[in-house]
């Protein structure tokens, strides 16, 4: 087992323990739910990192057949696997967020820009999998899926990154709500938060790589 995998396990284990046991600032309304920062937010960082790599693999795939060499279908399988694992992390982020929202906002779901962004991301990537499953020819499937992946990723980033800043939001980090910003993230929380983010990204990457290997083994059978 490589060192980075062990690092990932240690970091996640540390963040699970310290996330529940360490001291956190007392804030009105948030109270103990502030600990969700250690569990909810890393899911989104991991999702974006995995989707980013899925995008990179799609770009590599489209370029692979370009200079006369044969196209590389393994890159397409990588793009698919990273997107799949990213989708699992987005569901985890969604559920941890919903539990938190019930405790602080009093409802599981509201029409908040951040929540809408999540819903759209889910829909886009579910559509990506529907597109994949509706094409029989492997080469054609890989090509169309890669094109859609790149097109959709950019529009998704516009949706979740730019548009919420144009409108009002209840979500922490927007308007006057406290969250991840240098003036209000307690430095004691950073000691747990950053390891959690790095640890979860490593774990997500690892799972995706295992799925890649499984794909290769299945093909050899």
């Amino acid at each position: 087992m490589r060192a980075w995998k062990i690092t990932g396990i240690i970091l996640v284990a540390y963040s699970l323990y310290a996330g529940l046991m360490s001291d956190v600032p007392r804030l009105a309304i948030l109270n103990e739910t502030i600990r969700n920062l250690y569990f909810h937010v890393p899911m989104w960082f991991t999702m974006i990192a995995l989707l980013g790599n899925s995008l990179a693999q799609s770009i590599r795939f489209l370029r692979s057949g370009h200079d006369g060499s044969s196209i590389n279908l393994e890159l397409d399988a990588k793009a698919k696997n990273f997107a799949e694992v990213a989708l699992v992390f987005s569901l985890l982020g969604l559920f941890t967020g919903m539990i938190w929202a019930k405790a602080t906002w009093g409802t599981y779901w509201t029409a908040d820009p951040k929540l809408n962004g999540t819903a759209v991301t889910l829909l886009i990537y579910l559509a990506y999998f529907v597109l994949r499953s509706s094409i029989e020819d492997m080469e054609k499937r890989a090509r169309l899926a890669a094109v859609y992946n790149i097109f959709a990723f950019v529009l998704m980033i516009v949706f979740i990154g730019v548009l919420p800043r144009l409108t009002e939001s209840l979500h922490p980090g927007n308007g006057g709500n406290p969250a991840f910003a240098n003036y209000d993230l307690d430095s004691g929380m950073r000691i747990v938060f950053y390891p959690a983010v790095i640890g979860w990204i490593i774990i997500g990457w690892w799972i995706s790589q295992l799925r890649n290997r499984l794909d290769i083994l299945n093909k050899q059978k």
């Binding site: 829909l123 529907v130 959709a152």
Partner: peptide, 25 residues
């Protein structure tokens, strides 16, 4: 998205699934 969908047969409903989330921004 219609160019993508045109490459797949029987694509009328697939076209709306592919494009509606992308139309939101």
């Amino acid at each position: 998205t219609s160019a993508i969908a045109s490459k797949i047969d029987g694509s009328a409903s697939l076209m709306s699934v592919l494009s509606i989330p992308l139309l939101l921004p």
